[in-house]
Amino acid sequence: MKRAKKLMIMGAILMSLTFSVGCSPRSGDVNSLDGKVIDRLPEDQKDTELDKALKSIRKARKESVAVKNGAEESYAGTGNNLPGQSKNMPIIDDLEEKDFEVILDYIENELKIPKKSPSGYDIAPCLDPRINAIYDDEDKGVADGYDNENIYIEEYETEKDDVYSYIFLVRDSKDSPWKVIHHGNNYKE
């Protein structure tokens, strides 16, 4: 495996761990946004404000990328305070390098998205409450039949700058490998 690919995978693992444990946000981070403010907005404005909040978190993540000891690190908000965020999202703390290889292989070879920087792709655990609603929904759509702890969603920047989509992965059990079952902006497609 090439050194750059190893660095990218290690960076993705570190980013995932950062998001899983809920690293404290930087000042000005969207996590300081009062989700109750967005909740009080008229329905037609909620999505617009949520999209602005997501854009801010993603921008902070991209701007905070640094290489330390040969591994890429990034610190940004977890999105936990976004309005409507699922309270049933499992903490997936057993992702391994091979799991990120599945994600990267899918982005590179199935979706054929070109790398945007020397370090690779902007990928991270899904922040969007509208997608994470899968964990609250009885109708899990593409992940029907899977328990929450066996569903994982990774967001990735598409070929268009600052436009994100999602890769849906499932596993049969905690001891089973993750596999991609869907990509897109809706889990009910």
Score class of each variant (00 low, 15 high):
2 K>Y: 12
5 K>Q: 15
8 M>W: 09
9 I>R: 04
11 G>T: 00
15 M>W: 02
17 L>A: 12
18 T>E: 05
19 F>I: 11
19 F>V: 10
22 G>S: 02
24 S>H: 13
28 G>Y: 06
28 G>L: 08
29 D>M: 05
29 D>T: 09
34 D>Y: 09
34 D>E: 09
36 K>R: 12
38 I>M: 08
39 D>M: 13
39 D>A: 15
42 P>T: 04
42 P>C: 04
44 D>W: 13
45 Q>T: 08
46 K>Q: 08
50 L>P: 03
52 K>V: 07
59 K>I: 10
60 A>K: 07
61 R>S: 14
65 V>Q: 03
65 V>A: 05
66 A>S: 14
67 V>F: 14
67 V>M: 15
69 N>E: 12
75 Y>W: 13
76 A>E: 06
77 G>W: 03
77 G>S: 07
77 G>N: 02
80 N>W: 15
80 N>D: 14
81 N>Y: 12
83 P>S: 12
86 S>I: 00
86 S>M: 01
87 K>N: 12
89 M>Q: 15
90 P>C: 01
90 P>A: 00
91 I>R: 14
92 I>W: 00
94 D>W: 02
96 E>V: 00
96 E>S: 04
97 E>Q: 10
97 E>C: 08
99 D>Q: 01
100 F>T: 00
101 E>R: 11
108 E>P: 02
108 E>H: 06
112 K>C: 07
113 I>W: 08
114 P>T: 11
114 P>F: 13
114 P>A: 10
116 K>R: 09
119 S>V: 15
121 Y>Q: 01
124 A>R: 00
124 A>W: 00
126 C>E: 07
128 D>G: 04
128 D>S: 06
130 R>A: 08
133 A>S: 12
136 D>K: 05
137 D>G: 03
139 D>G: 07
139 D>Y: 11
140 K>A: 04
143 A>E: 01
143 A>F: 05
143 A>K: 03
147 D>C: 09
147 D>V: 07
147 D>F: 10
148 N>H: 04
150 N>E: 04
150 N>S: 07
156 Y>V: 01
157 E>S: 05
158 T>R: 03
158 T>E: 07
159 E>A: 11
159 E>R: 13
160 K>N: 11
162 D>Q: 12
164 Y>F: 14
166 Y>E: 09
166 Y>T: 00
166 Y>V: 01
169 L>H: 05
172 D>R: 05
172 D>Q: 08
174 K>H: 12
177 P>D: 11
181 I>S: 04
182 H>T: 06
184 G>Q: 05
186 N>E: 11
189 E>S: 14
189 E>W: 15
